[in-house]
């Protein structure tokens, strides 16, 4: 069971009426797992309805796979409950950490890439896959600082995790662009080194830009349209891999549903090889 190789959207409750009325032609919807861990009420009622009509991607933000602590057993159990109830086509999490000593920071925090963290993350991914009884996807992060004790390049780190654990990868093209611009690296070189054959889903989102003395600092804000250079990278990826499930993420300053659909249509055009999508 995999996600359709089409464009999908992050589900926002305020769009529920528009979705149920118009039944838009989309490959899937994605939800943040932690927003659906209440006992009942409207969140689950909407999700059940959505799930009946569309393929579903459950995207976690709270497992803290890259953290030093053991995975939270209660949280794993709740994730399993959610996955068993809605049987999503995909479950994904992040190459990041979010909790330490029982406190959750609720952000996707960066980590050094070392033999120690590699082995730790592989153990965590194994544990998640075993517990959920399904293969997961791991997403590349957007980062703002590097660490001087990192001695494994991020692409190699992700390749190694994927090979050791069998997990797939979620390639966030905006994160690639944001991180590479921030660290004055070439996003095309990053993608050249990225194991595209392990990619099970693509994320596309908008970012904000600040100016530092040395140049731009891009911030992965999920609050606007996907930027042109990110669309261009996306088209290059798709021309190599063929169509992949491709999500538009827009989590802050959420616009009306038509605006999100316009972004999804642009992704659909690129997926179908229509290069006019790049000049609109």
């Amino acid at each position: 069971m995999t996600l359709p190789r089409k464009a999908g959207l992050g589900f926002k409750p305020e769009h529920f009426p528009a979705i149920t009325e118009t039944k838009p032609d989309l490959g899937f919807f994605e939800i943040h797992a932690e927003n659906y861990m209440g006992a009942g009420g409207m969140p689950h009622a909407m999700l059940e309805r959505l799930r009946a009509d569309y393929a579903l991607s459950v995207h976690g933000v709270g497992l803290s796979i890259g953290g030093p602590d053991p995975l939270d057993r209660d949280h794993l159990a709740r994730l399993k409950l959610l996955c068993d109830r809605y049987d999503p086509e995909s479950f994904s999490e992040h190459l990041a950490w979010a909790s330490h000593g029982g406190v959750w920071m609720h952000d996707l925090l960066p980590l050094p890439y070392t033999a120690e963290t590699l082995s730790l993350i592989c153990d965590h991914v194994d544990e998640v896959q075993e517990h959920l009884g399904r293969r997961m996807l791991l997403e590349n992060p957007a980062t703002y600082v590097l660490f001087d004790d990192s001695d494994i390049p991020e692409t190699e780190f992700l390749t190694e995790i994927s090979q050791r654990t069998g997990c797939g990868l979620l390639l966030d093209v905006n994160n690639v662009f944001v991180s590479c611009v921030n660290h004055r690296q070439d996003p095309r070189a990053y993608l050249e080194a990225f194991p595209l054959n392990r990619v099970g889903e693509i994320h596309l989102a908008g970012h904000e830009e600040e100016e530092l003395p040395s140049g731009p600092l891009l911030i992965d804000s999920h609050g606007r349209e996907v930027a042109e250079p990110v669309w261009a990278l996306y088209a290059e990826i798709v021309s190599k891999t063929g169509p992949l499930p491709s999500l538009i993420e827009w989590d802050n300053d959420v616009p009306d549903f038509a605006t999100l659909m316009a972004e999804a249509k642009r992704a659909s055009m690129i997926l179908s090889g229509d290069h006019h999508a790049l000049t609109s």
Binding site: Y144, H183, L212, P213, S214, L217
Partner: peptide, 14 residues
């Protein structure tokens, strides 16, 4: 251990 091309920017980035 946080670093950046221009170390003077680390705090801004963090």
């Amino acid at each position: 251990n946080a670093t950046a091309q221009d170390p003077a920017e680390i705090e801004r980035r963090f």
